[in-house]
Nucleic acid binder design. Sequence first.
DNA 1: CAAATCCGATGCAATTTTTGCACCGCGTAT
DNA 2: ATACGCGGTGCAAAAATTGCATCGGATTTG
Lengths: 299, 299
Amino acid sequence: MKHLQDFRYIEAVMRAGSIRKAADDMNITASALNRRIQRFEEEFGYEIFERLPRGVRLNPAGELLVQHFRTQLSELRRVQGQVADLTGERRGHVTIACSQALSPYFLPARVAAYRAEHPGVTFAVKIRDRAAAEQDLITFQSDLALVLEPVHMVDFTVLSAVPQVVHAIMREGHPLAGQSEIRLRQCLDFCHVLPSSAYAVRHMMEQALAGASRNLQPVIESDSFDFMRHYIEFEDALSFQIPVGLRFPAGSGLTSRPISTRDLPAGSLLLGQMKGRTLPIASARFAQSLISAMEEFAD
Amino acid sequence: MKHLQDFRYIEAVMRAGSIRKAADDMNITASALNRRIQRFEEEFGYEIFERLPRGVRLNPAGELLVQHFRTQLSELRRVQGQVADLTGERRGHVTIACSQALSPYFLPARVAAYRAEHPGVTFAVKIRDRAAAEQDLITFQSDLALVLEPVHMVDFTVLSAVPQVVHAIMREGHPLAGQSEIRLRQCLDFCHVLPSSAYAVRHMMEQALAGASRNLQPVIESDSFDFMRHYIEFEDALSFQIPVGLRFPAGSGLTSRPISTRDLPAGSLLLGQMKGRTLPIASARFAQSLISAMEEFAD
DNA sequence: CAAATCCGATGCAATTTTTGCACCGCGTAT
DNA sequence: ATACGCGGTGCAAAAATTGCATCGGATTTG
C-alpha cells in the first residue's frame, strides 16, 4: 500500500541504524531517503530520530510512532481479510509463534484439523523461543503465540492456559523407568541432555535447583528438541519435555515419567495475543479451536 | 498528514456522492480524483465504491475501510498527543459531544475546574442531540459523549451512568409548586413547553404516555432549552428538564418539582466513548474527572 | 421519443513532486 | 593528522500527479 511507504522506510532506517545503510537496503538514494524522513518529521510535528555521529536512532517519540504504524498495518490486513470475507472469498491467514515443543505433534494436528474444516485458510507457523514469541506479537509478525512460561508478559493477553508438568524422557530400560514419578535430584545422578537457557524447561529446572547443593551439568545442550529426543535413543541419558511435546511411537524404545511437582512446579502453557488487538477473523477462530484442544492436555 | 490524503479524498467522495462534486469540494479535477480512487482500489485489492448512473456510493467493503481510516486517524492524533506529552509540552485536546441540558451549568463548571488544574488542555464542546452524539463518537469527531438516554448504544462503551429524574419547571406561584412531587397527568392540565422529539426528555415523556388516554399537546415546541426555560418566565406554563440542567438564580422567579417516577421512570445520563477505542490521555483524564462529578448528581 | 444533462473513464500534455548526483561540514576512528 | 562514514543540501533529471478535452453510457427532461 502506497500510503505506508514512509513507514517502510522508517522501519528500514530503524533496523539499519543509519540512513545510508537503509537507503542501500531499500534501493534508493541516501539523499532521497533522508528527505523523506525529514519531510515526515516536519508533517508529524516532531523529530523521530536522534542524529548520532555514526548514524541515527529512534527517539522515544519514534518508538511510539513505529508501534502505531505496526498496529495500523496489522489492522489494515485485518480489514482486507474482512473484505475478502464479505466478497465471498472465504480465505484467511493465521500466523502463530510457538515453542519448539509444540512443533512435532500438537500443533500440526491442530492446524490440520482446522484446515480440514476450513481449507481456504493458510498458516504461518513460526518456531520461537519464549522471548522471541512475545517479540513476534509486539511487532505484529504473529497474531498468536503459544508458549511455555513467557518471559515478560507485557502487552500479552492470555487467551488460554494449561499447566504442564515436566517429564523426564528415557529409554525403556532406564533404572528410573520403574518409578511412576521421579524426584528432581534423582535426575542429577544420570547424564542429562538439556535445551539451552533460552527455553522454558531449562529455565524452570534452573529455578528449581537454585540454592540447591547440586546443579545441572548437561552432557549435551542443544537448541533442537528433536535432536535431544533422538539422542536419548543412543545414550542412556535423560532428557526433558512437557506433555504436549511427548509421544512415543511403538518401537522407539523410549518412555517418560513426570518429575514430582514438589521439586519442579508445573509450568503454564499459554496461548496469547497482543494486548488490545483485534485479531483477524481466521486467527480468532483458530484460537478458539486451539483453546478447546488445549483443555484436553490439562495435566 | 500526507499519507492520509487518499482517505480525505475517499471521505469527500462518500459525502458528495459523486466524484465530480467531491473534486469540486476538494479543489481538484474530477479526472485526478477519479484516478486516485481507481489507483487506491487497485492497491487495496477491492473496489470500495459502487458505480451508479448518477454517481458513486460506498459498498460494504468501503464502509469497513472508512471506519478503519477513521480509527487510524484518531489513533494518529492520540500518538501525537502522547509524543507532545513526552516532549514536555503537556498540552492536550478534549472533544466531547453532549446534550443541551449540560451546556448551561454542569459542563462549563467541569471544564473550567479541569482547566484550572491543566491550563494547557484545550476543549471542543459540541452540543448534539442524543442520536447525533453517538454518531460523533462513531465518526471519531468526538472522544467522549455525555448524553441522556442514547438511542442505539451500538459501539458505545458506558464509562459512567447516573439516573436523572425529569423535573417540571414552573413559576414560583404556579399551582403545582405547592407539591413536592408531581404526577405526570397533572402536567397535561397545564400548558406545556417541550423540546422537539429528537431530545430524550420528550422521548421519555411520550413513551410514558403511550397508550394513555391523554397525550402531550405542547403549546411551544423548541430545539432550544434556553429558549424554553426563559419562556416560562413569561407564561404560566410548564417546561421540563433534568437535574444537571437545573439551577435557578435568585430572582428568576422559577422553581422545579420532580415528576413522580411511578409515571416517568428516571432516565440515564451516560458518559460514553467509542467501543474498543483508546482515548487520548487528555480525554481519558477528563473523563475520570467527569465521572467523579457525575456521582454527585445521582438523583 | 429525442435532446439535454450528468456521470465515470481515459489519452495526452503541463505541472508538481520525488529522486539521483555531487558535494559540504562535521565528528569519530585510525 | 588524515581518512572515513555520517547527515544535510543545491540542482538537474526522472517520475508521478494533475488538468484539459473528450468519450460512452444512463437518466432525466421537454
